[in-house]
């Protein structure tokens, strides 16, 4: 059974078709890369998968269940976790609180049990805190536990965002340019880290990356978007030598110059 299936996802903003006919099937345990030049529609694709944008056309299936029309928080509860391209932490909350918010959707205690701190709630809250601590030590942030999230250095913030997403216990994790703003060494470390958590939590991951080189090492399969169109899909080697891809990236490079 496929974890994720996107079926001809298309979205238009006014006259602009940001993504057209995006199709992908992701199997259990895969680590898929989604690459493409600036403005190709990568983030928009993630936003359609997570319910932020409703596609103009097409459907999204999670474990063969149609989730296209579901609310964002429902989709999260069903098992899609995500991070954001520009880090979006709850910056005035403490590091551990950030992670604990991710567990709120699985809270079993009722509102009044929570407010009156009944033993059942206290126990559950204790458990949530314990889990959050474990996640934090997983991403090596345990020593920052009570720091305000906004005060962390950038790299740590990125890892905290991943920990927070993991707290929702996702089956599928969507990472939007996790290596953005990092130097090559840091990017390599991060990619190793991602592989590690993938094994540890038995995750299926889709990863957006701007820079092709970063994902070549860890993704077995890569999709390339350009102007919203999927121009290539395949093994890293194939992608690297695909003339269309080279053209898209060269074109983008030329634009920079």
């Amino acid at each position: 059974m496929s974890v994720l299936k996107a079926d001809h996802l298309t979205i238009k903003f006014g006259g602009l078709t940001a993504v057209s006919n995006f199709c992908v099937t992701v199997e259990e345990g895969e680590l898929v890369g989604l690459i493409g030049p600036n403005g190709a529609g990568k983030t928009t694709t993630f936003n359609m998968l997570t319910g932020v944008y409703k596609p103009t056309n097409g459907k999204v299936y999670l474990y063969e269940q149609d989730i296209t029309k579901k609310r964002i928080d429902q989709i999260t509860a069903l098992g899609i976790g995500r991070t954001f391209q520009n880090v979006r932490l709850f910056s005035e909350l403490s590091v551990i609180e950030n992670v604990m918010v991710g567990s709120h959707l699985r809270l079993k205690s009722s509102f009044f049990q929570a407010v009156f701190h009944t033993p059942r709630y206290t126990k559950e809250d204790e458990q949530i805190r314990e889990e959050a601590k474990q996640l934090l030590s997983e991403v090596h942030l345990d020593k920052f536990e009570n720091k305000v999230a906004g005060s962390l250095p950038y790299g740590e913030q990125r890892r905290l965002e991943i920990a927070r997403a993991l707290a929702t216990k996702p089956k599928l994790l969507l990472l939007d340019e996790p290596a953005a703003g990092m130097n090559p060494q840091e990017s390599r470390d991060l990619m190793n880290f991602i592989q590690k958590i993938q094994n540890k939590f038995k995750l299926t991951i889709v990863l957006i990356e701007h820079d092709m080189k970063v994902v070549m090492g860890i993704c077995k399969r890569i999709l390339v978007l350009d102007y919203g169109v999927t121009i290539a899909e395949g093994k890293p080697i194939e992608i690297q030598h695909n003339p269309e891809v080279i053209k898209a990236y060269l074109g983008a490079e030329a634009n920079y110059a």
Binding site: D73, R88, L89, E97, V101
Partner: peptide, 16 residues
Amino acid sequence: KSIREDEAAAEAMGVN
């Protein structure tokens, strides 16, 4: 508080 900090992120973390 997460809603106050960042609505979109809160929603993505499963907060209704």
